[in-house]
Design a protein around this nucleic acid. Structure first.
Length: 871
DNA sequence: GCGGACTGCTTACCT
DNA sequence: ACAGGTAAGCAGTCCGCG
């Protein structure tokens, strides 16, 4: 059995400003004829669910573990798209626009729990034959009805939620039916499930989570690919036009495939390069179309294909190039959507999209990479690099050099999914399960959509109405605090001002996942903050006029609480449990990391208008309670005779606290504030200037923690950074107050040395480069022209290469403004600007250790260096 | 015409 | 398109100054 490919116009098109709108999804649902639809299938991972317009049915893509292939399962339950409305069925049938529609299959009453009003409500459910009848066209039902609910959910997702399908989990096909494969939960999980369910969660539900998250993922068969394109005019190749030839395509497969396809251009007798990997197979082609056909054959042979920016470049380019060369579309496994390149034969994973996700960058990888290029990410996570062409372009290489260059990119792209025991693949699978999101979507959408998807699924599971964003806004678009920052909607966290100085023996306490704990313990959710019950109105959140429900447990509160508890009480301890095999430990570690990513974002989304459950009072209450928690704890600590030096949001820096007092404080916080206070770390000493978010601390083992200081910022020139690093090394040797004189004198020497380097111009301009990232395209800076934009424009003029958002600018300050670092000579450098920068960078350290710059530099004021250096 | 006070823009950071 | 808070540098504006 096979299915014709078809373009499905699904739903969700216009009204892009509407919160809760799906990203355009129509084009996604192109299913190829190439996938088999077997009657029976062994254990398989549910990869994604799509809608097949031709078949008019949802289709699940499954990765069978045994055969390592993708199969399709078509819905055989007769599920259909629908929406809800409050118009009674008989009235609805009389409406002319309904009467004349022949794609409506059924109109019936359903009861839904309306959480905002805490009551069961009757709705009319309009079931249609296809998603476009519901939404996605100007004349769709959702546009015609005065009010509609659940009409904006992509059909494939709607189907998934109604069927309770969990992407990433294990299923099989048995006599054409899709059935979950459920493992037994670990024996000791039952006890814990009772504990967690004590908070209002259903015990079976907790056990279901255990089963799903504990099930290890297979090691997916996959193929990484990368292409190189000729660039005759020196411009970046345009993937929408594909006018230039594809000169190389390389592959790296999990099965050991290492191959490069290279186009023969002028060379007749290619000369191999020295250090060619022995197992790299190179195939030469005279005909570009033949090369592409071979490329497509390989792509089609793998269930998962990995690229780095394939959505916007590699696969897009290949598609349009194939079109241009007249390759029949039936031989091209790629289909292009609005925002992604899809494969008819499997799943396309674009790692660029995944790593660019802020939540992944910050929480999963601790901010180890700061730029989103392949080179930067591979360097940070793998310690591997692209081949340095030293300014040459790919098409200027010999065919062997080109093969090697291209191949290295495929290799590191693959390794990004393979390092650390395939951490990235596992993380993706785990996040798919938690967020109820297919692999294709998960890697392309942000956390707010991950959370939205799970929330929708939970609403359907419990027969809650999925309310419209307007329903929430109408009832509670109200704020009662003022943000510190202009343009922000409400007041956030508290930062305690430190007093300048060096403090020996500092313990840092912090509240364990404070915001999620507050959502859980204080019953915060869109329906429980400012709930409809008059009797709850006195249960006020401090500093606000919001009240919290005393009668019912909020759905978001419960969900966040459940995920938090699973992480803290189960997966985190199990990840460190030496009783368990290494395999399970590492899997549990992935689980706890994925849960952390998810749970950490769960507060912020309530303050984001784009989140369909956007509810300012929830975000505001969370922040207000967090302020209450930290201020009360500080007060309590002071009453107990402890000195609190500093604190930021959820942390307290305490001077030499006795162990018993800490224990008392921890118990007090649990009992009175319902939050867990932990010992985070211990410093031999901490040095504060009086700036907030700005200090350094030396741990007992001599390691250094630097926070917020200019010396660690990316836009500080290397010369100054190095001086700063050296000074901190000197300071890290300080063991007691009496060691300070020595360290101070070293800092003094470093500073003098640096000033003299600047003054004598005995530097490399690269060491003076200020590195800044473009957050917009250079043409989009309308309000003013910052220095890095001036430099960027100069650079564009000179090289002819357009710079764009995400690019890095390196520039140097000169006597008449700025210059890109590549275009500047030593004599143009305005050294006084750098002495100023050195001063501000060191002021932050010197303020803390009780020195002054002028004092450090001796009698001669810095200005005199400046006079001597310039003019 | 010029400098100081001010505001706003921009980036990078912290939690 | 998860949030707000802080530091810093620079661009641009307004005002006063006989």
């Amino acid at each position: 059995m096979s299915v014709e490919p078809d373009l499905d116009l699904n739903d969700e098109h216009e009204e892009s400003e509407t919160a809760g709108e799906e990203p355009s999804s129509e084009e996604e649902a192109i299913i190829s004829a190439k996938l088999e639809t077997p009657a029976n299938l062994d254990e398989s991972v549910l990869m994604t669910v799509l809608y097949d317009g031709k078949a008019e049915r949802a289709v699940a893509l499954l990765y069978e573990k045994k055969s390592e292939r993708i199969y399709a399962w078509y819905d055989n339950t007769g599920h259909r798209p629908y929406l809800l409305t409050d118009i009674p069925t008989d009235k609805l049938r009389e409406l002319p626009e309904i009467a004349k529609l022949n794609t409506i299959e059924k109109i019936e009453y359903v009861k839904k729990y309306h959480a905002l009003d805490d009551k069961l409500v009757n709705f009319t459910k309009v079931v249609a034959r296809d998603p476009l009848t519901i939404g996605g066209r100007p004349d769709s039902l959702r546009q015609k009805l005065p009010a509609a609910w659940e009409a904006r959910i992509r059909y494939a997702n709607c189907f998934m939620y109604d069927r309770g399908l969990i992407p990433g989990a294990t299923y099989k096909i048995s006599n054409y039916n899709l059935v979950p494969v459920v493992g037994e939960p670990p024996a000791d999980a039952a006890t814990l499930a009772s504990t967690i369910s004590g908070d209002g969660a259903d015990k079976d539900q907790v056990l279901a989570w255990f089963r799903v998250l504990s099930d290890p993922a297979p090691n997916f068969k996959r193929l990484a690919l990368d292409i190189e394109v000729e660039t005759s005019d020196g411009k970046v190749p345009n993937a929408d036009k594909s006018t230039e030839r594809v000169i190389a395509v390389s592959f790296y497969g999990s099965d050991g495939l290492k191959r490069a396809l290279v186009l023969m251009r002028d060379e007749t007798e290619p000369a191999p390069v020295e250090d060619m990997p022995k197992d790299l197979e190179i195939e030469f082609y005279d005909d570009e179309a033949a090369l592409l056909k071979q490329c497509f054959k390989l792509i089609a042979a793998y269930p998962v294909v990995i690229t780095f920016n394939g959505d916007n470049f590699d696969l897009k380019y290949l598609y349009h190039r194939a079109e241009r060369l007249g390759i029949p579309l039936a031989n091209v496994p790629i289909t292009l959507g609005q925002r992604e390149a899809r494969l008819a034969t499997g799943i396309h994973l674009d790692l660029y999209q995944f790593f660019k996700n802020r939540a992944i960058q910050i929480y999963a990888f601790d901010g180890k990479y700061k730029e989103y290029g392949l080179e930067a990410i591979a360097a940070a996570l793998l310690g591997k690099h692209k081949i340095d062409l030293g300014g040459k372009l790919a098409h200027e290489l010999s065919v062997y050099e080109l093969a090697l260059y291209c191949f290295r990119d495929s290799q590191i792209t693959f390794e990004l999914t393979n390092f650390n025991d395939s951490l990235v693949m596992k993380l993706i699978i785990m996040l798919m399960r938690i967020s109820r999101t297919g692999m294709d979507d998960l890697t392309r959408i942000g956390v707010s959509s991950w959370i939205k998807n799970l929330m929708y699924a939970m609403h359907r599971e419990r027969n809650y109405l999925i309310v419209n964003p307007e329903d929430i806004a109408q009832r509670k678009n109200i704020s009662s605090t003022h943000a510190m920052i202009k343009g922000k909607k409400y007041k956030g966290a508290i930062v305690i001002s430190p007093s300048a100085g060096v403090y020996f023996g500092v313990t840092v306490l912090d509240f364990a996942s404070l915001y999620p704990s507050i959502l859980k313990e204080y019953n915060l959710s869109y329906e429980t903050v400012r709930c409809p019950h008059p009797e709850c109105r006195t249960n006020l959140v401090p500093e606000t006029e919001h009240w919290r429900c005393t009668k019912l447990k909020g759905i978001a509160s419960q969900l966040v609480g459940l995920l938090r508890d699973l992480r803290v009480l189960w997966f985190k301890p199990k990840a460190n449990d030496s009783q368990l095999s290494a395999l399970y430990r590492s899997w549990y570690d992935v689980a706890q990391r994925a849960l952390k990513v998810y749970v950490n974002a769960s507060y912020g989304v309530f303050g984001a208008e784009t989140f369909p459950f956007y509810c300012l009072p929830v975000a505001e209450s969370t922040a207000a309670i967090a302020r209450f928690v930290i201020t009360s704890t500080v007060k309590r600590a002071q009453e107990m005779g402890m000195k609190v030096l500093y604190g930021d949001t959820d942390s307290l820096f305490v001077l030499n606290p006795p162990r018993e007092k800490i224990n008392d404080l921890v118990h007090w916080a649990r009992a009175n504030l319902k939050v867990d206070l932990d010992i985070d770390k211990q410093f031999r000493y901490v040095a504060f200037s009086e700036r907030k978010k700005n200090y350094f601390g030396i741990k007992n083992d001599g390691s250094v923690d630097i926070k917020g200081l200019l010396g660690k910022k990316r836009n500080t020139p290397p010369l100054i950074k190095q001086a700063f690093q050296k000074s901190l090394t000197a300071l890290s040797a300080v063991k007691s107050p009496s060691d300070f004189e020595q360290a101070k004198s070293e800092v003094r020497d470093i500073l003098k040395q640096t000033v003299s380097t600047l003054k004598s111009r005995n530097f490399d301009v690269n060491d003076l480069a200020i590195t800044v990232m473009l957050n917009k395209n250079p043409t989009d800076y309308k309000k003013n022209t910052p220095q890095h934009i001036k430099a960027a424009r100069l650079s564009e003029d000179k090289t002819g290469r357009k710079l764009s958002s995400g690019d890095i600018i390196r520039f140097v300050k000169t006597y008449d403004g700025v210059q890109p670092v590549d275009l500047v000579s030593t004599s143009e450098v305005d050294t006084s600007k750098y002495i100023d920068a050195l001063r501000t960078t060191f002021d932050q350290v010197l303020d803390a250790i009780g020195l002054e710059m002028d004092e450090v530099m001796g009698e001669r004021k810095l200005e005199s260096f400046f006079m001597g250096g310039s003019a």
